[in-house]
Design a protein around this nucleic acid. Structure first.
Lengths: 210, 210, 210, 210
DNA sequence: TATGAATGAGGGTTCATTCAT
DNA sequence: AATGAATGAACCCTCATTCAT
């Protein structure tokens, strides 16, 4: 479980009222998420975003310093959706195997629901500068850490028979596989419904763990 | 095994002599690969590429119609490197398990060698237009098809005990995991050398298959 | 002695209480003088000025109609500093030569003290519109008129042996030379202290006048 | 005579043919000089300049890296006009007094002819960044050095009876006075024609020197 | 009177692509 | 086939000023 802690990337604003910032940014994010996932980050104009967000360009740039900031906010927002769904699924009263399967299911389901955004999020991460990218990747580590802990529980209670170094890889694999459902939708949906996909993945995971 | 066959995306040129086209494009690709993986596709100007390729912008645009064409050529080039390495590793005289492990090893090793380019290739795929992207993704399918066949051999010979639908997923996983080594290098190299990574992955694969 | 009299440029305000206007404007001027002379008029934003003046942009614009008004106020303020220092030095009980030398000394000394502001004042005069510039230049004429009168005294009393048309030029020269000390500080301080500069200028002036 | 030598500020270009650069820049300068002296540097748009220069904005920016570069070129161009006129007037076969008077006359006359540009040149110098400003000011020193040499000749030959430190000041004064004719045109032309101005200044200079 | 969010025109600069030589 | 100057639409962001509270 890696935990190199660094400060979060902060999106600056010249607006003082935090409530307003939150509200306006939500509007910006909502608009940007849609346009970005249709046309991509680079092909989208700041003016377009502002218009779609129902505000003036100048206004928008009071809540955000650069276009990239918008991308960062968007990525974090999407990530939060996933994180919330995952954490909501986690219950303490289940066997380790059930628990990790439940997490996996929740993860795959939320990714399925917002798959366009997941693609966007990972595709455009590259357009963030170092600072922002690092900060975003840290968030991702939180997800993996969560899964690692769940797997570790299974090892500790003697249910899972895997080597210690596999923990990290398997946790990471689950994450990556969820993303894959988004990225390869066009090809996977030929063969799987989301339910079938989850079922097959669950089986493979069980094979691996026990 | 997916095989929706469509025509390949063709990069047009106004130059007649095919030998010259090949030579000049090789120069362009070599230059572009380096700059793209340093600065990214969008941050790179056509002029920079031309200069690095030792030719004039005008000249370059005679071997290529758009900047995106260059990206397409670059992606295909990188992909070829991987494809060649994978095919070179495949031998007929081995057990299915040995064979798929050998393939996996070759794949991971080549990705390790050109990891910067792999990252570039997958990161910037989004910047290709529909046509070109589809054509590029078709190439990727060839890789997966190859792996699928190897796994199928094991099933057919009764060595691998997995469901039919897992074939596709496992083949895809191997591919994705190779890419992961490139994408998460910064985090994985904390825990693994490439040899260790291959070994662990091999073990997990064996668990899964047998 | 030129005296084309025109009305003064008036900086409008929407605030009724004159005391408050005076106080607030003093705060604005103090803030603006500093920032302008650090970054120049164009590079300074109204928001910066307001913040430095400890008030809100909106508030500031109630005491001033445009950004240019601030510049005008600043220029007038700086000019007043010089004017006051000059008038304070003038005494009636001295020979014409002593008197003009005293004035010159006072002028050079005050310019030396606020040289940054003098540079600012003359540099940015160009950014005033016609109206405001004319009004400001009128103030400058008051200074020259003062010096002209002092020289005239010397001529009238038969001490200064110069032609009538030189009066204007010499008065102007003194003014310009004082500004030069501000503008060419970087080069003049290699050769002169302010005392030495004043001494040398005094000698040259005496040569010229007698 | 100050001569801190530093490298000249070089205006970059992406155009290789030096002849073309020279020709195009001449067009840019011609256009810019006119618009700048009408509206000032800040109020002028790069697009306006390009249009007036009969070329595309993009084209213009191939001969110049920034708007400020244009200002620098303009300032240098104007300065060259003055320098050439001054050097052309200098003859060796005259007494020191005649020589310096001739120089002064030439200087005042050229400034009179291009007075709008002189005002522009000195007014907007402040808009140059440090680098460019330093480089431009160096050019100005060449002018002063020239005048200093002329005065020195008179001292060396025993004709001028002035202290050594006055040499610098008097040379500088001549320069400044020429600029004054440009800057205070509106006020000076009430009292002087250029010929009368030159005559009066010559007299004062002679008084000072002999 | 004071606040600070909203406005939006406009500015400098870039760069993929073309085309005359 | 090669050169490199020309094109111009488009982009991100700023900031003086206003106005509702």
């Amino acid at each position: 479980m890696s935990e190199t802690q660094t400060e979060e990337y902060i999106v600056a604003t010249s607006v003082k009222n935090p409530k307003r910032v939150e509200k306006r940014r939500a509007e910006i994010i909502d608009a940007a998420v849609k346009i970005f996932s249709e046309k991509g980050y680079h092909a989208t104009t700041t003016k377009e975003i502002a218009e779609a967000a129902g505000m003036n360009v100048g206004t928008m740039f009071q809540y955000v310093k650069t276009k990239q900031d918008i991308l960062y906010l968007v990525c974090c927002h999407i990530h939060s959706l996933i994180e919330k769904a995952l954490y909501a699924a986690t219950s303490e009263n289940s066997t380790p195997l059930e628990a990790i399967k439940k997490d996996m299911t929740a993860l795959f389901e939320i990714v399925d629901q917002v798959s366009d955004y997941v693609v966007l999020m990972y595709q455009e991460t590259a357009s963030l500068d170092k600072e922002a990218r690092r900060s975003f990747l840290q968030r991702e580590q939180r997800l993996r850490n969560h899964l690692e802990k769940q797997i570790q529980r299974g090892i500790d209670s003697g249910v899972f028979k895997i080597s210690q170094e596999s923990v990290f890889l398997i946790a990471d694999d689950i994450l990556v596989q969820s993303q894959m459902w988004a990225f390869r939708r066009w090809s996977l949906t030929n063969k799987f419904t989301i339910e079938k996909y989850i079922a097959t993945r669950s089986e493979l995971l069980e094979t691996l763990l026990t």
